[in-house]
Simulated assay, not measured.
Amino acid sequence: MAISAQSRARGALVGLAIGDALGMPTQYMPRALVSARYGILERFEPAPDDNPISRGMPAGRVTDDTDQAVILGKLLVEGKGYVDPRRFADELLAWETRMIAAGSADLLGPSTRKALTLIAEGMPTDETGRTGATNGAAMRVAPVGIVFPARPVEALVDAVFQSGHVTHNTTIGLAGASAVAAAVSAAVDGATIDEALQAAVEGARQGAKRGFYFAGGDIAARIGWAIELVRGKSEAEALDLIYDIVGTGVATQEAVPAAMAIISLAPDDPWRICRLSASLGGDCDTVAAIAGAVAGACHGVEAFPAPVTAALESANPDLDLIGLADRLLALRGRASILPPVAKGTSSA
C-alpha cells in the first residue's frame, strides 16, 4: 500500500520525538553503562537519578531536540516558509527560560547559546552563527524538509540556511542540517530508505558550500563512510563501531553520520532504528531524533507501534505533532524563504 505524503510528514515529526524521548534517559551516558543497564531499549524509560541532564524527567518526555523542532516548525508556518532570525532567537531564549523555571538542566546547546549571547551584544544575525558547528541545526531541521521540496536541492539548502544561520552558519553545521532536511524531504516525496540516504549525501555536499568555513571532516564523505563501516555487521558490532569510531558526540560530523549509519542497520523498521540509536550512549537523544525523523518520513507514522505513539502523546500532551506536520505539509511547494509582504504595502 502506498504511503501518503501526509503520513510521511507526520512520521518525520513523530519519529523525531520518539527517538528523542527514547534517548532522554540515556543521553550523555557512556555506552558501556547504557548497555549494562538497558541493553537495547524496549520502551520509554524515566530518567535515572545518576543522569545529571535529564534526571527527574518521566518516561516518554521529549527534550530540546523536539522542542526546538516544534519552535522552528511553528515559525515556518507563521512566516509561510520564512523564519525571522531575531524572532527565532527570542523564541529559543524564552524556551530556555521556561526550562530553567521548571528546574531542567536540559538547556540550549553550545552553538545556540553562543549565538544568542552575540545577538544580545548587538552582533548582526548573519554573523552570530559563524562558529556554530555542533548538531543543533541538524536535530531540529526536519520541519524544513517537510515544507520545502527535495528538488532542486540548492533551493532546499537555501531554506536550511535561511532558517538556521542565526545559530549555525558554518560549512559543517549547514552540511549536517542540509543532509537531514534533504533525507526527510526526499522521503516525503516517496523515497525509500536507500534513496533518502543518498539524498542526505547530496544535501550535505550542497550544504557544505554555505556558511563560514569551519575545519572538520566532510559530512557527505563521513555519511558514506559510516554506512559502509557497518555494512554486513551484526547489530552489536555495528553499534560498537559507531560509538567508538564514528562517534556520538555533539559534533555534527559525528552525530549526523552516526544517525545515517544506524538507519542503514534496520531499514525496514523505524521503531528499531529509534531503539538502536537511543541505546548508543553519548548524545544519543539527538542521534535518535535525527534517525527517527528520517526513518519515520520514509515509512509513515503508522509504521510506529500504536502503543508507542500513544505513550508519546500522553507524556507530551501539548506537542500536537500531527497538527503541526499537517500545517507544514500544506505549505509544501508554495512556501518562500523571503519575508511575507505586509498587508497594505506594495512590491512595486
Rank of each mutant, 00 (worst) to 15 (best):
163 S>T: 14
206 Q>M: 12
248 T>F: 01
195 E>W: 00
312 L>D: 09
64 D>E: 11
270 P>D: 05
260 M>Y: 09
276 L>G: 02
80 K>D: 09
243 Y>C: 08
331 L>H: 11
293 A>C: 09
317 P>I: 08
5 A>V: 02
153 V>C: 12
9 A>T: 03
14 V>Y: 11
315 A>V: 09
336 S>T: 13
232 G>H: 06
57 M>P: 01
128 T>N: 04
270 P>Y: 02
102 A>M: 10
217 G>M: 11
218 D>Y: 00
289 A>P: 01
154 E>D: 14
163 S>W: 01
148 F>V: 09
207 G>H: 03
221 A>K: 12
195 E>Q: 15
239 L>F: 02
147 V>F: 00
175 A>L: 02
320 D>P: 09
210 R>C: 09
104 S>N: 10
82 Y>K: 03
125 T>C: 13
323 G>H: 02
38 Y>C: 03
344 G>T: 10
79 G>W: 07
308 V>R: 10
186 A>V: 00
48 P>S: 03
95 W>N: 08
124 P>E: 10
109 G>C: 10
238 A>N: 01
48 P>Q: 06
335 A>Y: 01
152 P>N: 07
111 S>L: 05
178 S>Q: 04
268 D>S: 14
32 A>Q: 14
39 G>C: 05
165 H>F: 14
107 L>M: 08
215 A>F: 13
330 A>T: 07
87 R>M: 12
160 V>D: 07
218 D>I: 00
155 A>Y: 00
4 S>L: 04
205 R>A: 00
177 A>V: 07
102 A>G: 11
10 R>V: 05
202 E>A: 14
323 G>T: 10
335 A>V: 08
264 S>N: 07
322 I>H: 11
212 F>C: 05
86 R>K: 11
322 I>Q: 11
33 L>S: 14
197 L>G: 06
108 L>H: 06
308 V>A: 14
243 Y>L: 06
331 L>W: 10
77 V>N: 01
234 S>P: 03
154 E>H: 12
215 A>H: 14
258 A>W: 00
257 P>E: 08
335 A>L: 02
65 D>R: 04
251 A>M: 13
167 T>I: 05
47 A>K: 03
7 S>F: 05
183 A>L: 01
243 Y>I: 01
327 R>Q: 15
204 A>Y: 03
173 G>N: 06
45 E>G: 02
206 Q>D: 12
253 Q>D: 15
317 P>M: 10
106 D>Y: 10
16 L>E: 00
93 L>T: 09
223 I>H: 03
42 E>A: 15
1 M>N: 09
178 S>E: 03
186 A>T: 00
160 V>T: 08
6 Q>Y: 03
53 I>Q: 12
24 M>L: 12
42 E>G: 12
239 L>I: 11
190 G>F: 06
88 F>I: 01
338 L>R: 13
39 G>N: 07
139 M>D: 00
218 D>K: 11
13 L>M: 12
340 P>K: 07
149 P>M: 03
131 T>Q: 12
143 P>L: 05
137 A>M: 06
301 V>I: 15
34 V>N: 01
139 M>E: 09
341 V>A: 13
85 P>K: 12
84 D>A: 12
150 A>P: 00
88 F>S: 13
282 G>C: 08
28 Y>N: 13
72 L>D: 07
194 D>S: 14
133 A>G: 13
244 D>A: 15
165 H>R: 15
239 L>Q: 08
197 L>W: 05
43 R>E: 11
298 C>E: 05
324 L>M: 10
31 R>D: 09
341 V>T: 15
279 S>N: 08
109 G>L: 09
262 I>V: 15
